[in-house]
Structure formats: C-alpha cells, structure tokens
Amino acid sequence: MKFGIVVLPGSNCDHDCYYVVKHVFGKEATFLWHRDRDLKGVDCIILPGGFSYGDYLRPGAIGRFSPIMEEVVAFAKKGGPVIGICNGFQILTEAGLLPGALMRNRDLRFICDYVWVRVERKDTPFTSRYREGEILRIPIAHNDGNYVVDEDILKQLEDNNQIVFRYCNREGVVDDTSNPNGSMANIAGVCNRDGNVLGMMPHPERCCEAILGGEDGKGIFQSIIETIEGGGWNGNR
C-alpha cells in the first residue's frame, strides 16, 4: 500500500511520517506537494504536524486552502482514510472535515511532553490494533491543542462514538489533572461520523521505535496498513 504525506510550507513532521512509513514499516510513501492536485494513487493520506503558513490568522486556517487540500477533501468524502496529526488536526477542523476547533492551550504555554491517552474506540481504520481502553504513552508538542466544540456537537460526538482518544493519567483515569491543554472532555483525537478521518494532537510518528523512547504509536500505522491491505474501510455506512 502507499501512503501520501502532504507537505505545506511550514510542515515539519512530514519527514518523520515518511521515515516511519517507509523505514519502520517498509511501505511505500510519497510526498504530496501543496501546490499539486495529484494524489498519486495513494491509499491513505497523512496531514503532518508543523506550522503551516506560520500559523498566521489561526493554525490551519490558510493551509486548508492549498490546492492539494481540495483533493484531500474529495478523497475523504469518498471514504479514503485521512489522518491529521497536530497541525494536520487543526487543518482538518478548519477544512470542516472534523467538528470543533483547536484553541490556545489553557495555560498559554507551548507544551512539549509525553502524555497518556486512552483509546476510546478501536473500530476505526487507525486504531484496530489497539484494545479499547488501552493506555498509550505518546508525545505532544503544541501551542494550540485546546479542543473546543459547542455542547450540542459534543453530545453528538459522544453519542456517535467519535471521540477516539482522551488524555488520561497513567492508570487510564480521565480527569482534569491529566488534561494538558484544557481540551473539552479531555479530547485528544476525534474522527468523523464515517470513521475514515481522524484528527489527533499527539504524535504517533514520534514513538514508533524503542530507541526514541517508546513504540506506542506503532499501532496507528499498523492499523492503517492492516485495514488497507485487508481490503479497505467500509466505514459506518
């Protein structure tokens, strides 16, 4: 299978994603330049972290209007798996592929740290290799990760089981002290209704090798690979 990694001006985790896909998992990977409109036949699109367009105006606000994004939106609407990590998550919310918005962290600080997240849902193309309730140790690095959504939509997210990851403590308890950035309901990652678009603030690509401090992110890539190679994702349709 083939992964496509979108490169916007200011993306800085694109090579990390490429490295993991290609050299940790031995799969094909290609960069998708922001000015292009060709998805090069990829099976899964990764919107990597970074500071696209300098985070000017709002994180992701300008990146979402890149020519390649029109193709990404069309791919997602056809059910293609799209994962946005950090700035990629911000872009997905700005593009309307995911609900909510990511605001400045509650404490107004850039946070670069390892956190714990609990896997809330395993029937997605991104989390099938995990157990439901599994606790992952995974790095975050962001200034604007404070997930905000209005109460009605939050209820819909809960009802439709769209919350994929929540910040928790080492024991898996979701509470305010384990919430690094003030996100509503400790949300660290959400998916769309069909389950084929995931946005998450933590960086799975930074924890795929023990030598780098952890391997808890591997399950994301393994899940995608198994899903695609096993015949694709039919979603909740």
């Binding site: 105006l57 709002r58 606000a61 300008i62 209007f65 919310t93 700005e94 609900p99 909510g100 918005a101 605001m103 905000v148 959504v149 209005d150």
Partner: peptide, 8 residues
C-alpha cells in the same frame, strides 16, 4: 470563508 472561524 477565512477571516473568522464560525465554530469559535
């Protein structure tokens, strides 16, 4: 379209 994010 761009200048404001209607969500927030």
């Amino acid at each position: 379209k761009l200048l404001a994010n209607p969500v927030i």
